[in-house]
């Protein structure tokens, strides 16, 4: 890979890190990192004057995220193909994990408003796992680019 392209990917990783930080801040501010926070955000809480989310309201938030999660994961993952060969064996597993966890993250709110409270845990789990996977992929790319 040309040096200039490596530079471009390194900056992409820096932007990705910033995107992850902003996602964490946004999630913490709007929903919170607790089981009760997630549940209250989606199913509402009369005492705290939190209105319940409707399926239509969730879909409005989810719609751009479906495209963005897919595109972002695809761009990040496809850089692995250009990276060091020793990582290629694990690529398939990473690709499956990234897309499945992203799907879970996107669609668990519908299960929560459907009455399945357990999915509040799944929402938190998928959110953090997705971010962790993105960080891991970014780390693999960073290592591959800087040490090659």
């Amino acid at each position: 890979m040309q040096e200039a392209y490596k530079l471009s990917i390194l900056y992409y990783l820096a932007f990705s890190l910033l995107l992850i930080v902003s996602a964490l801040m946004l999630f913490e501010h709007k929903i919170g990192f607790s089981f009760s926070g997630v549940l209250e955000y989606y199913t509402g809480n009369e005492e705290k004057f939190i209105t319940a989310q409707s399926a239509g309201g969730i879909l409005k938030i989810v719609l751009p995220h479906i495209f963005v999660f897919g595109l972002f994961a695809m761009v990040l993952l496809h850089f692995l193909v250009f990276a060091d060969l020793r990582y290629k064996e694990n690529i398939t597993l990473l690709v499956y994990a990234a897309f499945i966890v992203a799907l879970l993250e996107i669609f668990t709110p519908f299960m929560i408003i459907g009455g399945f409270e357990f999915f509040a845990y799944m929402k938190l789990f998928s959110f953090f796992t997705f971010l962790a996977l993105l960080l891991y992929i970014s780390w693999l790319l960073f290592q591959s680019i800087t040490y090659s």
Binding site: S8, Y11, F15, L18, K30
Partner: peptide, 22 residues
């Protein structure tokens, strides 16, 4: 909340635009 949403969206659009342009 609005500020964080704005910032979050800006980061995504800018990173995609600049990656492809570069």
């Amino acid at each position: 909340s609005s500020f964080l949403e704005f910032w979050h969206t800006q980061i995504f659009f800018i990173m995609m635009i600049l990656l492809t342009l570069s």
